[in-house]
């Protein structure tokens, strides 16, 4: 059951959930949450709840898919049946396959795949609860899980969306803004090199609005990057102290 379109989504400079135009939703991150995975992470981003597990590098089956010069990266994005208001039919659909592809392509840019020829790295992303912006949240969670698994990467990948709601450019759209807003622009970056590894747009923006939205999304992604680093420092700093 979808909530009907509200008359206005920005009232006195505040959005429907009480945030300012350029505010992120509250974010919580944890790594090493699953015992049996090589690396794992759990992310709460506003109403989004995402669990991510990484296995590998390990032997690839079927073997004919193995690449002789590098590892294969397999991403599987899936939403739980209870993750949205109406029951989501389980199994892959058009949207899940597309998201798996764009997440894989974003992550392939940072992983040193040539170090593990003829193997596979599996990234499983499960959306437990969805509240808009799950592709950005999934990239952030997957990047943390890969770092937790000890897989060599150029840098963490960080992501955030910007968009247009009621004629205003806003940061980090939630579900209602995503559904009834005028545009949505998810962006993923590699902060160290400044590369953009994901850029999609839904809706219409003028050239100036696009530039403003892109800058805003990148600034949001940089804030998320700081949180990712803090999470890893906290987790492994504690471990380092106990092992010493």
């Amino acid at each position: 059951m979808k909530i009907g379109k509200p008359e206005r989504m920005i009232i006195n400079g505040k959005r429907l959930d009480g945030r300012g135009l350029y505010d992120l939703r509250p974010i919580k991150m944890r790594v090493g949450v699953l015992k049996n995975a090589d690396g794992s992470s759990y992310l709460e981003w506003g109403g989004n709840k995402i669990l991510c597990a990484v296995h590998g590098p390990r032997e690839l089956h079927p073997k004919h898919l193995a690449k002789p010069d590098k590892a294969m990266l397999r991403c599987i994005y899936s939403m739980a049946t209870f993750s949205v208001k109406e029951r989501k039919k389980p199994g892959p659909d058009r949207r899940s396959i597309e998201l798996s592809k764009v997440i894989r392509e974003a992550l392939e840019n940072v992983i040193f795949l040539h170090l593990f020829p003829q193997t596979v790295i599996d990234v499983y992303i499960k959306v437990l609860q969805s509240d808009g912006g799950t592709r950005c949240a999934s990239i952030v969670a997957a990047s943390l899980a890969l770092a937790d698994a000890g897989i060599p990467m150029k840098d963490l990948v960080s992501a955030c969306a910007a968009g247009k709601v009621d004629g205003e450019i806003v940061l980090d759209l939630f579900e209602i803004e995503d559904n009834y807003g005028e545009a949505d622009l998810p962006v993923a970056i590699v902060p160290k090199t400044g590369e953009i590894v994901l850029l999609q747009m839904d809706g219409n923006l003028t050239k100036d609005e696009f530039k403003k939205a892109l800058d805003l999304a990148i600034s949001g992604a940089m804030k998320v990057y700081e949180l990712q680093k803090k999470t890893l420092y906290e987790r492994y700093g504690e471990r380092y102290e106990t092992e010493r």
Partner: peptide, 8 residues
């Protein structure tokens, strides 16, 4: 001291 992915 620890370093994380992407640290100088």
């Amino acid at each position: 001291m620890i370093t994380i992915t992407g640290d100088k």
